[in-house]
Design a protein around this nucleic acid. Sequence first.
DNA 1: ATGCTAAGTTGACAGCGTACACATCGGTCG
DNA 2: CGACCGATGTGTACGCTGTCAACTTAGCAT
Lengths: 214, 214
Amino acid sequence: MARETYHHGDLRNALIRAGLEVTRSGGPDALAIRDVARRLGVSPNAAYRHFADRDALLAAVAARIHADMAERMHAFEVDGLGAADPRHRLRAVGLGYIAFALDEPGWFAVAFGRIDNGPRSADEGGMAPPLILLVEALDALADAGLLASEARAGAEWPCWSAVHGFASLALTGPLRGAPRAAVWEHAERTVDTVIDGLLAPEGAASVSPDVHAG
Amino acid sequence: MARETYHHGDLRNALIRAGLEVTRSGGPDALAIRDVARRLGVSPNAAYRHFADRDALLAAVAARIHADMAERMHAFEVDGLGAADPRHRLRAVGLGYIAFALDEPGWFAVAFGRIDNGPRSADEGGMAPPLILLVEALDALADAGLLASEARAGAEWPCWSAVHGFASLALTGPLRGAPRAAVWEHAERTVDTVIDGLLAPEGAASVSPDVHAG
DNA sequence: ATGCTAAGTTGACAGCGTACACATCGGTCG
DNA sequence: CGACCGATGTGTACGCTGTCAACTTAGCAT
């Protein structure tokens, strides 16, 4: 494991790879600069030549995860019968998001799990790849005339909220530890419910009184 | 601040109160045993007489937050016109959940924000109080005949997923920093969408092909 | 060959969780 | 009343962490 060259050569990528390895099972808290440096046979401070601080490394790891997640979601999408029907496509995107979270809870937590109010760079690098899939699926739905064009704007939020919320709750909430089949059933129900709501004739069932924010 | 008695007298509660204070602005990461002990003029290890470890203290803090959250949600519920219509009631519960998250991001993160796979005691102390409100609202909806009884089971998940996901995303996702009014609009849309989906005639729009978990 | 600069190193400091042994109080029993 | 004892708080110590500062090395360009 001890290298012979003074310079590592590809430390930046090696750090990210080690970060992926460590966070896969332990989530974001498992990432420690000193630890990954040790694994690579490198002094702790070497990492600081490539990342400003621990959060920067974590962000880089998260970026890789985003890409991988988008890949897997896409595979999931084309796997579950061709994306002929845009509704199926949207459904597949949502379930793909959840499937990734269930398969890789540690990585999911790194990619989307941080809920702190830190001012972590408003929009660095644009939208996360997994979200692009959602946007495309919704666009397809609108193009097909299944989603009214005036309802298209902001439709990302109910969808993303539902799948993200479900993923979070399945990993931490009462559903944690439940048999995968049961979890998956609830996941399907959740996804189908938002899609139904999105495509339902406007406000068919629910009414919207003026409730204001606290 | 320095006490004169050797024994503090109410250290356990004092620790929790200090924990609430600290996490309110800083979230779960801001809670440090040494720090809260210092604030109370007590040695760090004194805390270990009342809590097994940092996570145990955090859990106690979370429990208080759950209670407070449920209270505020209930106030929000009765505030936005009486719960005459069960649909309004469900809506209020959802929006109350989100409102709390927006008002108290730090506390919300403590109460619901942890996404790690740690085996944190499957079901200690039963259901979280905020969730009880949701269950009751759904029951009322079913009792009123607005929600088909066969659709009642598991209806918590789409609802909770949507509001929890929205709250998380509003605090960390692209919506973070957006003007409150805009965020609130999306919140309403999200809540209304799930309610519509829940109350829509079964699978009116979306079809459910057999997509299996990865 | 001679520098310049990027990349790694050693050393240090402060802060953390927490294990272990000790001190001190309040209440209870002989 | 005094001795005891369990509950509570203290002191010390270890290993871990992030990160700053100053130094060393390697490789590239002049």
